[in-house]
Amino acid sequence: MSLSTHLLVHGGRRVALVAAAALTATLTLASPAAAHAEVEADHPQALAQNVTLTFVSEAESADAGFRELRVVLPKGIAPEDITLDEAPKGWKLKATGDGYTVAGPALKAGVDAEHSIKVRQLPDEKELAFKTVETYSDGEVSRWIELPTADKEPEQPAPVLKLKAAAPGATPVATSPSPSPTQSAAAPTPSAEASDADASPAAEDSAADEDDGISSGVVIGVIVVVLLLLGGGAWWLARRRAASSES
């Protein structure tokens, strides 16, 4: 092989290696980061009712399993608007101030945590973010709560659900049932306080009458006793004077 041919072949290999490395780097940068917490819906549409949302948290620890997931609900979904549909055996849902937790016996290491909730109605938005905090049995915590910004993609993105536009004529439902007219118009049962207040004037009048009766009786009795004493004293005095005169 001539020197020129050798140089040509060697140079071609170097170019191929550099090109392969560049292609690998490009693909790596272009590929999205692997999601470790995801959410899906059976009816991903704004203002849709009775929608089932399914959450999947991918296990990262080789030594511990999930024991609790905490989800922050987006604006437009209140904790009282959801119910637990499915979860790992023994796991229970508990409402929090801004969302809910679902927890129970720790899963085996390497097992993904999946649960579903039923939502009364989705809000009228284009997308919904469900910030999720995962807790393992050894106390390790993973926070998938970051939202994308204009200049960079988050390293630990929160699960995001994209929604279709609301169906024509769809409207938000009431946040909570209103009391029925019958219940509102019904006469309330008197409370203990109201009964006591209503009964107080009569009780006071009765007590006052009773006190007056007792006071009058006492005064009359005292007067009678005094008169008797005075009468007895006068009789005794008159008799004594008569006895003195006779002697």
Rank of each mutant, 00 (worst) to 15 (best):
M1V: 05
M1E: 10
L3G: 10
T5D: 15
T5K: 14
T5Y: 12
H6G: 02
L8Y: 08
L8M: 08
R14D: 04
L17K: 00
A20H: 01
A21K: 00
A22V: 10
L23K: 07
L23T: 12
L23W: 10
A25D: 03
L27G: 03
L27F: 08
L27Y: 06
A33K: 06
A33F: 08
A37I: 07
E38D: 14
V39W: 00
E40F: 00
P44I: 11
A46S: 14
T52K: 00
T52F: 04
T54G: 00
T54Y: 00
S57I: 02
E58M: 07
A59P: 12
A59G: 13
E60S: 05
E60A: 08
S61Y: 06
D63A: 14
D63P: 01
R67M: 10
R67T: 10
E68K: 14
E68C: 07
E68F: 05
L69I: 14
R70W: 00
R70D: 00
R70T: 04
K75M: 04
K75W: 01
K75G: 09
G76T: 11
I77K: 11
D81N: 12
T83F: 02
L84A: 03
L84I: 07
E86K: 14
K89I: 02
G90M: 10
G90H: 07
W91N: 02
L93T: 01
L93W: 00
K94P: 01
T96N: 03
G97I: 07
D98S: 07
Y100G: 09
T101E: 09
T101F: 05
A106D: 00
A109I: 04
E114D: 05
H115G: 06
H115E: 04
H115N: 07
I117S: 06
Q121A: 03
D124Y: 03
D124T: 01
E125F: 06
A129L: 09
K131T: 04
K131Q: 12
T132L: 15
T135I: 11
Y136N: 02
S137Y: 11
R143N: 14
W144V: 02
L147N: 07
P148S: 09
K152S: 14
K152D: 05
P154C: 07
V160R: 15
V160Y: 04
L161C: 08
L161W: 13
L163N: 06
K164F: 10
P168Q: 08
V173N: 04
P177Y: 08
S178A: 15
S178F: 05
T182C: 02
Q183H: 11
S184V: 15
S184M: 15
A185K: 11
A186L: 13
A186R: 13
P188G: 11
P188L: 02
T189N: 05
P190C: 03
D196V: 03
D196P: 01
A197Q: 11
D198N: 10
A199R: 13
A203G: 06
S206Y: 06
D212Q: 13
G213E: 14
V219E: 15
V219G: 03
I220D: 12
G221D: 12
I223S: 11
V224Q: 05
L228H: 06
L229C: 13
G231S: 13
G231V: 11
G232N: 12
G232V: 12
W236R: 15
L237A: 15
A238N: 09
R240I: 04
R240G: 09
R241G: 00
R241S: 01
A242P: 02
A242F: 03
A243H: 07
S244G: 05
S245V: 15
E246A: 13
E246S: 10
S247K: 10
